[in-house]
Design a protein around this nucleic acid. Sequence first.
DNA 1: ACAACACATAAGCAGATACTTATGTGATTC
DNA 2: GAATCACATAAGTATCTGCTTATGTGTTGT
Lengths: 104, 104
Amino acid sequence: MMENDIFKALADPTRRAILEKLSSGEMNASALREGMEISQPAMSQHLTVLRGAKLVQEERHGRFVNYQVNPDGLVFIAQWLTKYRSYWPARIDALKGLLKDMDQ
Amino acid sequence: MMENDIFKALADPTRRAILEKLSSGEMNASALREGMEISQPAMSQHLTVLRGAKLVQEERHGRFVNYQVNPDGLVFIAQWLTKYRSYWPARIDALKGLLKDMDQ
DNA sequence: ACAACACATAAGCAGATACTTATGTGATTC
DNA sequence: GAATCACATAAGTATCTGCTTATGTGTTGT
C-alpha cells in the first residue's frame, strides 16, 4: 500500500535527513553520505525505501546515480492532511480553500 | 524530539485508522474500538503514543476518557511539508503562497 | 584486459515495536 | 461498600527494522 510505505519511510530520522538534503538540489549517493556518518550499504538501503515510497527519484549517469525529490509521496501526505482540515487552528484557516483545490 | 514522535506515531496503520475515526468527531476509547478488532490494552497503548505526538487530546468525563484530534501534530507536518514546496507539481503550485502564510 | 570506482544486494544480528495476558486504578451503580 | 465498569500499566514475546560485514554488478579509465 502506498500510504503505509510513505509513512513508514518517513518514520526514520536518517531518511528524513536524506530527503532534506535533497531538498536543496539533486545529489548522488556518495554526495548524500558526506557529513552523515552512515555506511554505503545503509545509504543504499535507505534510498531504496525512499524510492519505494515515491519520495525520491533516481536517474543513472554512468556509474553515478543521481537522486532527487519525487513530489508524488509529498503530495500524497498533503492530501492526507486535508482529512483533518476542520481541526486546524483558525489562523491557518485560510489554507482550507486551497487544500481543497488539490482534490482535483 | 517532537518531529520524530509525530512521524513514528503515524507510521502505524492502526494509529492512522484511529486518527481517521476521530476526524469525524470526538470519541471515547471504547467507541474507538468498535469494528476495529483490537484489544483494550492495545488501544490504550496506541492512544498514549498518539497523545505523546500531540496528534490527539484527551478529556476525562467520569470514568470515560474522550479523545479528539489535536491539531498541533498535524500543523507540524504541514509546516514540514513546506520545505519541499519547490518540488511540487505545477498544478498545485497555487498552494505555495498559502503554505507560506503558515510560516507566520 | 584489468584495476578502481559507484552503487546494490545478501545474510546475520541487536534493538525497537506492537501485540498478548494479567493486574492495577479510579469512577459509577446498586 | 461491593461489584462493575472504563481505562491504564506491567511484563513477556514474536515480528519488524536498521545496522553491520561480505560480496556482487555495472561503469570508467588506463
